[in-house]
């Protein structure tokens, strides 16, 4: 027993030494939302190509900050970089989409497991204008459900997060009152409700507060088997959030740089509170003083992420990129340079 253990340890050490001598190590930081997917992808890629990626899920804002201070090779974010941040970067930063995420609206209402919500209802509930579940307007779009007379308790994220950004971005598009009163951002000045820290904090509060309503990441809602609401999209269809309907939401004309918010999509069967999540890469990697082999290894890895790596997306409840999005991402990756020379051919 002892002997086998020491052999394993020894061989691990020897392997470690041989690899550190050759292997390329990449460092990335950013969004927490795609972290389970990225860690699976990077692990699989390491098995394939022996390229080690150290990804720290410190949040989208942190990832952008690290990228701007040039301490990481790539960043990751759930939101498009703001103009102020882009200006700080000095050169262009490409947003490479890797998968889709969505916010699901979850609730805890005794005897109710599904419901339909219209954009107006969502805005008015989260603005604090509809305060009771037996409101006539809720009953109107849910004729078959009997709602109890119960106060609505709004639960939302207290920590800054890309999830909140996506949700507020959606509300800004559907409600001018929301846009002028609250606006969009990773942290907001909420008019009502109680805040939980992280998806787990929010779902913890929802699970034990009868009458509560909240938004959480879709993968989190699916994983925890929480009831979610169908949301009416721009085409008038009530869409249940699923991997299928989230992927569907990007079935629209995409700009070449993919820096587009797909909330409130006009895709016919698309779920309206969806978003890309991106990996952020400098246009010319020489600003990071990357060597030839490092730059090449990173670009190959990103290329793999948007092609073969996409196989890993669905099993983890994320929504894979649509063919149109992959095409755009390919174009972006091909334009990345090192000392003015394109890396991928």
């Amino acid at each position: 027993m002892k002997k086998t253990l020491s052999i394993i340890l020894l061989s691990a050490m020897v392997m470690g030494i041989t690899f550190t001598a050759k292997a390329v190590e990449l460092v990335g930081a950013g969004a927490t939302f795609p972290y389970p997917l990225y860690s699976k992808m990077f692990d699989t890629y390491y098995q394939l190509k022996k390229v080690k990626v150290n990804y720290q899920s410190i949040g989208s804002g942190g990832g952008i900050k690290q990228l701007l201070s040039k301490t990481v090779h790539f960043g990751a974010s759930d939101a498009v970089m703001e103009d102020e941040e882009k200006a700080k970067a000095g050169i262009k930063v490409h947003h490479i989409p890797t998968c889709f995420g969505a916010d699901a609206i979850t609730f805890n209402l005794p005897g109710v497991t599904k419901m339909n919500l219209t954009p107006d209802l969502i805005a008015d509930i989260f603005l604090g204008k509809i305060t009771s579940w037996d409101d006539k307007r809720i009953a109107k779009v849910n004729p078959k459900i009997k709602f109890p007379k119960m106060p609505i308790v709004v639960v939302r994220r207290s920590d800054g997060s890309g999830t909140t950004y996506i949700f507020s971005d959606y509300l800004c598009k559907i409600s001018s009152e929301w846009e002028s009163k609250v606006g969009r951002g990773k942290s907001l000045n909420w008019p009502v409700g109680i805040g939980g820290k992280g998806n787990e904090g929010v779902s913890g509060l929802v699970k034990q507060t009868p009458g509560s309503i909240a938004y959480v990441e879709l993968i989190y809602a699916i994983g925890n088997k929480m009831p979610v609401a169908s949301v009416q999209n721009l085409s008038g269809n009530f869409v249940y959030p699923s991997i299928q309907s989230v992927s569907e939401s990007a079935n629209i004309e995409l700009p070449d740089n993919t820096e587009v918010s797909i909330t409130n999509t006009n895709a016919k069967n698309g779920y309206p509170i969806s978003s890309f999540t991106w990996i952020l890469v400098y246009d010319d990697l020489s600003v990071l003083k990357m060597k030839d082999d490092e730059a090449k290894a990173m670009m190959n890895m990103l290329w793999w992420m948007i092609h073969d790596g996409q196989k890993l997306v669905k099993p983890l409840h994320y929504a894979p990129l649509s063919p149109a999005a992959v095409k755009k991402a390919e174009g972006l990756l091909k334009s990345v340079k090192l000392n003015g020379k394109n890396i991928l051919k």
Binding site: I64, D159, G160, S187, I194, K197
Partner: peptide, 28 residues
């Protein structure tokens, strides 16, 4: 974690330390 000044003891509120803990990571 509510940013509104609490009017009763049962109301949600916030403290200085918890605001920092909540919002620091995404303050860009």
């Amino acid at each position: 974690n509510s940013h509104i000044l609490p009017d009763t003891l049962f109301a949600p509120g916030n403290t200085m330390a918890s605001v920092i803990a909540n919002e620091f990571t995404e303050a860009t």
